[in-house]
Write a protein that binds this DNA or RNA. Structure first.
Lengths: 260, 260
DNA sequence: CCAAAAGTGTTATGCTTACACCCATGC
DNA sequence: GCATGGGTGTAAGCATAACACTTTTGG
């Protein structure tokens, strides 16, 4: 299981900041400062939030309002509170940007090169998240405290990014490709109801290669993670059957490569 | 690629501790203390070092000399220096315990539950490492500063462990199993020359299941990561051909499950 | 009736599995 | 000569990959 601690988590109530004293170190000084015998890195969480919008794979970015890298786009994220689980911190930051509920979240990697932040030593724990199309459409992208702007960007046309965020996103894309090939989590990028053709387009966009329609359908249906909703997608042409994914799709880690 | 940033790294020279001032925060106070506007977690690295000794899969543990958990066994590790890459910190800690060279190291996961260390908030970045049998035999296990004792323990008979290290080890074992099934890295646990039977015993021990001899040999040889050294292992019975692994074995991530 | 997307089966190939006996050596 | 581990091949079943035409609807 590299495919790590996977969880479908609910958003948590906003974490109340009540800094716990660290008993190994000196107390906060009267001025409200925190003093340690050794220097400590700052710890942030960054979230790579993917969704599928406008027939493309998108990642959520925020435009930085303040230096360093003011004006540049960056991953949403921020400092982990002292008494807050890292995953909770990721959810909280995400909520501050997007208000999303029901999000798939998993730890991606911890980036800790000494020079990755010009302000000093900052270690970031990156989280990987998948958001359904309908949730992505519902959220109004808010300009938060530290973010002048929030927007979705195609992973194939990213702007210049702050810090080492370009590298982090590329790493997340690798992980996403791996996930689609080996698990059934492609569903999580789509609306609750979707057609098999839409699902195939997601796979083709993420993997960046065309897939055989008949084989795709056969494999998807054989994987036993889809069920027809009974509804049809009416459109310009022949209506298409709509599917939803079954609960077991979330847990399922396929034992075989899907698209060799 | 969940199988993350994989690297075969050389040990680095001991990191000189020259704490970099963090420019976003107040300077070190005259007393040599470091003061920040917000509390910061401590960041440690822990290493799960596996090898294959005495026909069993072993992990390196140290016995803690000091509280908390004095007398308990724990993973080797320690604080990351402020100007030190996390991976370098892992290598340094490992070197302090074992003097090892040529080690396979990869980041495993970051554990950051607020209550995982009774002293306060400590986030640990766990690293996963594989050591060859001959290196494991060569090292003399030293009692370091904070370690009363250092020893190899069978993963199937672990002592009571400090902190959340039991959980971390179980997670590392999962990753190791996954690695053996999907990559060719089983070699790294063995001496430079080994027989196919020895290799099979490693796989069986790690995966905790018997494997078919003929199929095992066929697959291993077909994977094109082994070459005969020309030497024979002389022993009690019929001599066995010795193999070494080829350089490409390191990079190789197999596309198919090896032992379904 | 035409354009556009939905939907559907078969065949050949290669990989995986299960399985049992002979070989070489030391004692 | 016997005990011990080293070493080898084949056949059946299964999953995969490649491939083209018909159906349904809207305009």
């Amino acid at each position: 299981m590299c495919q790590n601690d996977i969880k479908l988590v609910q958003p948590v109530p906003p974490s109340v900041e009540t800094p716990t004293k660290l008993t190994t170190v000196t107390d906060p000084s009267p001025a409200g400062l925190y003093t340690y015998a050794h220097p400590r890195p700052a710890v942030t969480v960054d979230i790579i939030l993917f969704t599928f919008l406008e027939a493309d794979l998108k990642v959520l970015l925020v435009r930085r309002a303040h230096p360093p890298f003011a004006g540049r786009w960056a991953l949403p994220g921020g400092f982990a509170n002292i008494d807050e689980d890292l995953e909770d911190a990721a959810l909280r930051e995400l909520r501050e940007e997007t208000n999303v509920a029901d999000i798939y979240l998993e730890q991606l990697y911890t980036f800790g090169a000494p020079d990755r932040d010009p302000r000093g030593r900052v270690i970031t724990v990156a989280y990987f998240a998948l958001l359904s199309t309908d949730q992505a459409q519902r959220i109004r992208l808010r300009a938060g405290d530290d973010a002048a702007q929030t927007d979705w960007w195609s992973i194939y046309r990213l702007p210049a990014l702050a810090f080492d965020h370009e590298r982090i996103i590329q790493y997340a894309i690798q992980r996403l490709r791996w996930k689609l090939e080996w698990t059934a989590l492609g569903f999580l990028l789509l609306p609750a109801e979707f057609t098999l053709s839409e699902l195939q387009r997601v796979y083709e966009t993420v993997l960046n290669e065309p897939l055989d329609k008949r084989n795709f359908r056969r494999k998807m249906l054989a994987a036993d993670v889809l069920e027809p909703t009974g509804n049809l997608r009416e459109g310009d042409h022949r209506p298409a059957k709509l599917y939803r994914f079954t609960a077991k799709a979330i847990e399922l880690e396929q034992a075989r490569r899907r698209f060799p």
